[in-house]
Design a protein around this nucleic acid. Structure first.
Lengths: 153, 153
DNA sequence: CGCACCTTTTACGTTTACGTCAATCCTATA
DNA sequence: TATAGGATTGACGTAAACGTAAAAGGTGCG
């Protein structure tokens, strides 16, 4: 099963990348490098977000994959779904101006920004309501003599 | 199947509750009144959060159920899980001071408040990152001449 | 009487992003 | 060669809160 063997130099994880030519990393190293699990990397691949090369059956990630993973993680961080991320990535064309991609990204971003702001408002609402409730409960706890308050039965 | 028939007065939904004695409402009215679906009410019952009386197989909700539902909805609004809500409600004892219940509620509330604040921070982070990205993308769109930026392949 | 409307129970489906085995395989190292 | 450490695919599990469909029973009204 070993017809091709690129980057044979780096055998185990903690080898010094040292020189250039350290093009490929395996899944374990990739995972550590970006703080994700192996499962996650395979999952992203399954969803068409990553496309590492193979040495037989072993996945080999290049810096292209790293760039993509970075984008995925950024996308996740700002709240995009993986589907959104994929949709945007799929539009990437190395030979063009990527105007369509950028427009789509901007469009989705605007919507996502709106969602985030709405969420923030909801959370602030919740914080306020919860704080109020806590105040009430604290009073109920200190002034022991509240037969019928707003508590349930 | 109709041995008991309390509150016979209000047959269909939009009847005027009018006088007192309108103790029981059926699921449809209850749902409209609180803006939830029938499914939700049954689901809450299934989870032990509600316990309407029955006329045969028909659910009859009293103001006790309404009070509980209000609490459930408040709990959900501030981000508690139904399990949390149930746990707190289960501690209610109409004959006691409910100190334990109140303490538990306060304890959970503090933790939830912390979670909410953390969430808010995350969201604000996301908003900032997203805003930055949008600025970048906008620049890329206006200055048509960016061969290799941080886009993926 | 028949239709429209409400209600019931049962139970599988949905969504998202992985977690957690399980069974195998390959490889470097002592 | 035995053993430990990675890696592979496959597939079910999880969490939350219902949605939705199916099949059927009860009820008032015209």
């Amino acid at each position: 099963m070993k017809l091709v063997s690129p980057g044979e130099a780096a055998a185990n994880s903690n080898d010094i990348p040292a020189e250039a030519g350290e093009e490929f990393v395996r899944i374990g190293e990739m995972a550590k490098k970006y703080g994700v699990t192996l499962r996650t990397l395979r999952f992203y691949e399954d969803k068409g977000l990553l496309n590492p090369k193979r040495d037989g059956s072993t996945r080999l990630y290049t810096r292209r994959d790293k760039a993509r993973l970075k984008l995925i993680l950024l996308g996740r961080k700002v709240g995009f779904s993986l589907r959104d991320v994929k949709q945007m990535m799929d539009l990437y064309d190395p030979t063009g101006s990527n105007t369509k991609q950028l427009r789509l990204a901007l469009d989705k971003s605007e919507k996502q920004l709106a969602r985030l702001q709405k969420q923030r408002a909801l959370i602030e609402d919740a914080i306020n309501e919860l704080s109020n409730s806590m105040t009430v409960v604290r009073h109920m706890l200190t002034e022991r003599a509240v037969p019928q308050a707003s508590a349930a039965g």
